[in-house]
Write a protein that binds this DNA or RNA. Structure first.
Lengths: 233, 233
DNA sequence: ACCTGAACACCGTTCAAGT
DNA sequence: ACCTGAACACCGTTCAAGT
């Protein structure tokens, strides 16, 4: 008696990939091994995922789906803090996730959604778009690896050829519908670049901004005689 | 007329690997491709490097060698700042270095030397061993990826079986000769763990420490009406 | 002491077919 | 519409030899 044939789909493939990576580790996760797990020939996967890169992008989507929505009715610092800790918990559930995130460069809709929502936590908290911009860069590494590339277009530029201005404007308009917060920040920093006074997206500036926030914080703790014992209280 | 045969050595192999990765990218760097570059059969490399992992560890050594020594006669914040910026420059010269560093878990002598010297910048600046400990964790991601694992022994524990106390003491003594600063910090946090009040090496605590340093810093900038224009002055 | 050659058990992905 | 099979051009690493 032939079993009812259950067709593969993208979602089944991605979930199986996440589960398998949890089990055998990311290095051992190959297209061939995943196919075997699904009881299918390797090439069957390529109907649902263009290549291995896209499989990894899809696995990131699954992880992002595990991050809690922002808490409501709290000051922005609490909202951000809880969200970051939730993201951290999601990453910890999947030990391979950190290293995969760090290699992703494609800005999939799932990633952009998360970024937009994250940006919104600062803007809703009343931070200026300027400060929010640099804060997003600074917190990037702590949120996880790919924030850096969001407002920094060097990665995107490599992927896509330059666009005529009208196409750029059209894209901006379309982005505004889905990602209003990202758009607000991107527009403000583009304006800054025009005036040549602010810092649109200078990689070195962003790095030093984050470094100085940390060093200044350390200095204040040192001056106050901070110790982890007292912090525990 | 036969050319004088120049034997391979570890250093030649590592330098060639770094140069080749710069040229063709880290993904394309294979033992086979590297051997070809050196005009040698793949297996010849295995005399100088146990396997590919060790090749990557060796490439990290080369990178560390490019980081400037700490500047002298300056306050600790400046010393740290300059060192971090120097490390950043080294990483930027080798675009593949970041991703390689993030996958390294072995604590080679080169890595320990760098860590010890880095720790020393804070201790010499007068920070307490306690604060230095948490600061080292906090700055880890900014320095680069592997600091996290230094005082956190979970990675080391996986690699090596547990030791009898005498062996541990002997190792400590030996470490004290080469890495006095690491030892000072490690001993202080071990003591804390005994009192069960401080935070020896709680991963979650370290993460939140760093997160809160950033968030508090952002809040202060927000309150002061910070803008990148004024920061430029 | 150092390098070689052949072989093993893997990869991701293509192409042209099968149902 | 979806899956298959065979093949291609690669990997890292072993082992037993060569000079």
């Amino acid at each position: 008696m032939p079993e009812k044939r259950v067709y593969l789909n993208r979602d089944r493939v991605l979930r199986a990939a996440v589960a398998l990576a949890d089990e055998i580790g990311i290095d051992a996760l190959s297209m061939r091994r995943l196919a075997q797990e699904l009881g299918v020939v390797p090439m069957a996967l390529y109907k649902h995922v263009q290549n291995k890169e896209e499989l990894l992008d899809g696995m990131v989507e699954v992880i992002i789906g595990e991050i809690d929505a922002p808490v409501v009715d709290a000051e922005w610092k609490t909202v951000v803090r809880e969200r970051v800790l939730s993201a951290r918990r999601a990453l910890q559930r999947h030990p391979w996730a950190r290293s995969v995130l760090e290699t992703r460069t494609r800005q999939t809709p799932a990633v952009l959604d998360y970024m937009d929502s994250f940006t919104g936590m600062f803007l809703d908290g009343g931070l200026s778009v300027d400060l929010t911009h640099h804060v997003m860069h600074a917190i990037g590494g702590r949120m996880w690896g790919f924030t850096q590339e969001l407002f920094d277009d060097s990665a995107a530029r490599k992927a896509a050829p330059p666009m005529p201005p009208e196409a750029q404007a059209a894209m901006m308009r379309q982005m505004g519908d889905s990602y209003p917060n990202i758009l607000a920040v991107a527009m403000a920093s583009a304006h800054d670049e025009g005036t040549a006074v602010g810092h649109g997206c200078d990689d070195q500036f962003e790095f030093e901004f984050a470094l100085d926030v940390m060093l200044d914080g350390f200095e204040r703790l040192h001056e106050r005689g901070w110790s982890s014992r007292r912090a525990a209280v």
